[in-house]
Nucleic acid binder design. Structure first.
Lengths: 147, 147
DNA sequence: GACACTAGTTCGTAGTACGAATTACTGCTA
DNA sequence: TAGCAGTAATTCGTACTACGAACTAGTGTC
């Protein structure tokens, strides 16, 4: 009985989470970046973002953001552009190379995860998305605020 | 149209993954541990494991394991027990305190994730587990080998 | 013009992760 | 049984991640 006992929801989510992280990490490394730096690029694909807002989106302290942006800037994948309306502030913006890399890596992650979910039939995939979307809507704060 | 356009499977999985990681991280911190150290404790709940096998289970290099176990051992949550059948090897084993902490934190993660999935009805939760289990069976190598 | 507030950085500390080199032991094989 | 290939774990150097406290500089208000 215990041997055929399946996972609980929590265990299933935690394990899946690790699997996804691993895929993301592998893609990042394949592009010569640590996962966190690729993550930053992905956040910036939608458009330039200031340091504080970036910290909010990535759930990191501002001081952590400074270091992360420093390292990615050193690789010439982003630049800090000073905000003309507020001389304290700056926005972080993808370079051309950063943009290319972000798109390429994003596509690769998408491809790999989609191929992994092919063990599910299309209807199931739709349900999976619908269910996770509902949980995210309820518990991911950055969900509510694109503005 | 684009505004009502839902997530793709990949985006849904990545976002969910981050959410789960965040919950796990918050619970870990609430117990005074970095997430990775709590993760180690969780792996050890099933029983003592040697360094190499531990690296395989957690997808980490052996040298990384050495450092991780060092830090957790310093907190007196695990001990290295030398393997009587092979004097090179050792197994890592939870201390009483480590065991208590692992169970408590594990329960808390479970509780929080279960409460978060209450936006789904029981049938859906079952489907979610079934689907993720299938993906894990296909792509998580540590799935196949409890032995 | 003083002052509370905000944006971002700096600094110190701890933890995470890798890979190459090293130590110590195991088990085979010639 | 003496040598040796292979394995378990550690050490070392480097880079990255993350936090919080303290700081700098610019904003906006009274």
């Amino acid at each position: 009985m215990a041997t055929t006992m399946g996972l609980g929801v929590a265990a299933a989510l935690v394990r899946t989470s690790h699997l996804v992280q691993r895929v993301f990490g592998e893609v990042a490394r394949a592009h010569g970046l640590p996962p966190q730096q690729l993550q930053l690029l992905c956040v910036l694909v939608r458009g330039p973002v200031g340091m504080t807002e970036l910290g909010r989106l990535m759930h990191l302290e501002r001081s952590t953001m400074t270091g992360l942006v420093d390292r990615v800037e050193k690789r010439r994948l982003v630049t800090r552009v000073s905000d003309p309306t507020d001389r304290r502030a700056c926005v972080v913006r993808l370079s051309d190379e950063g943009s290319r890399l972000a798109v390429a890596a994003h596509d690769e992650v998408t491809t790999r995860l989609e191929s992994m979910t092919e063990v599910l039939d299309p209807g199931e995939r739709g349900q999976l998305v619908a269910m996770t979307t509902r949980v995210l809507a309820a518990y991911d704060p950055s969900w509510a605020a694109p503005r």
